[in-house]
């Protein structure tokens, strides 16, 4: 998984379709932000059918990661700085 491998991540959903992953984020997390493909979460360019839903749960960031042979994984990573950065973008996009 490249630099994703160095993260302390938890797999929330595995071998899902991209749409299942997006619906899961929207249904299971109160906060989410929609981004476009290529948007950087941590050091990862997220891919997917736009819009891509990124979940926020306290200091946790929940984002999709697709592998060609294994479909889409939904990963949960604790990172206060990144959660704050994404929440700030959410406020800007709503302003």
């Amino acid at each position: 998984m490249g630099c994703v491998e160095s993260m302390n991540y938890e797999i929330v959903l595995r071998d899902a379709t991209f749409r299942e992953s997006r619906e899961y984020v929207r249904s299971n997390f109160k906060e989410s932000i929609d981004v476009q493909p290529g948007f950087k979460v941590f050091d990862v360019h997220v891919i997917g059918l736009p819009p891509i839903a990124i979940g926020l749960d306290g200091d946790f960031v929940i984002f999709p990661y697709t592998k060609p042979c294994h479909g889409t994984f939904l990963l949960r990573v604790e990172d206060r700085e990144e959660a704050v950065r994404l929440r700030a973008l959410k406020k800007v996009s709503r302003a």
């Binding site: 379709t17 991209f18 476009q36 493909p37 891919i47 997917g48 042979c69 889409t72």
Partner: peptide, 28 residues
């Protein structure tokens, strides 16, 4: 994504959901 490189044509091989996801990404 970082606009450091682009191509005139792009062919995405699709036989599963991940392939569709990569094709949509390239389109965007």
């Amino acid at each position: 994504s970082d606009k450091k490189r682009d191509f005139d044509r792009c062919f995405v091989f699709v036989h599963n959901d991940a392939g569709v996801t990569y094709a949509a990404t390239m389109g965007a």
